[in-house]
Design a protein around this nucleic acid. Structure first.
Lengths: 104, 104
DNA sequence: CGGGATCCTTAAGGATACTG
DNA sequence: CAGTATCCTTAAGGATCCCG
């Protein structure tokens, strides 16, 4: 599953408000991810039905990406995971510190 | 985070009932994962405070792994993710089929 | 029994350059 | 603008053998 990919969650965040975004618009909040990697991520998400790719026949070309219902349904478990991370991050940090201390 | 690792979730499943398990016991349900990979996974999870490693001073040696409270707290979001996957797996399969069909 | 040491394969991710 | 093409680096994961 590409759900576990490095960029899938961040693309989801970029599109969760329902507004379609263009390829270049997506690159900005993603720290200027290279075109190749963004393309791979978007293609995989389109393939799995998480987003829809719309090509507008204009000049210059315009391509927009928007979440599908399936993609939107991912937001809930994603939020749950983020909430868990925020809540428990201090404990993890503490555990790591304790581990390092025990190692020395 | 090692939470996204390939084996972390499965180790969690092996220990979620609260019963401590030995190194060898863990290997069985994990399709005979190699010792190196299991060790790496367990060490990372111990480092992050998800489980506790207990060495019993016996002969032959006995080492047991058990979830901590922090590790148990991961079960909830993990269940949520699994529930999502079960619910939407057919949609993903269908989307992939449609994608393949459109490609040809 | 519970690993450590070593070597290897693969795939994700990325840098750079070019194109319809 | 929205990619494609090519090459490269790294690290996860794994196979195999060895040890206290």
């Amino acid at each position: 599953m590409r759900v576990g990919g490095k960029w899938t969650a961040m693309v989801l965040r970029c599109l969760e408000d329902g507004t379609p975004r263009r390829f270049s618009e997506l690159r900005v909040p993603l720290h200027w991810i290279t075109p190749k990697v963004l393309t791979e991520t978007l293609r995989a998400m389109e393939r799995d039905g998480f987003l829809r790719r719309t090509v507008h026949d204009e000049n210059p070309p315009r391509v927009e990406y928007a979440l599908t219902d399936l993609g939107r349904s991912l937001i809930t478990p994603l939020d749950a995971a983020c909430a868990w991370a925020r809540t428990h991050a201090p404990e993890i940090t503490e555990a790591r510190t304790a581990y390092e201390r025990a190692a020395s």
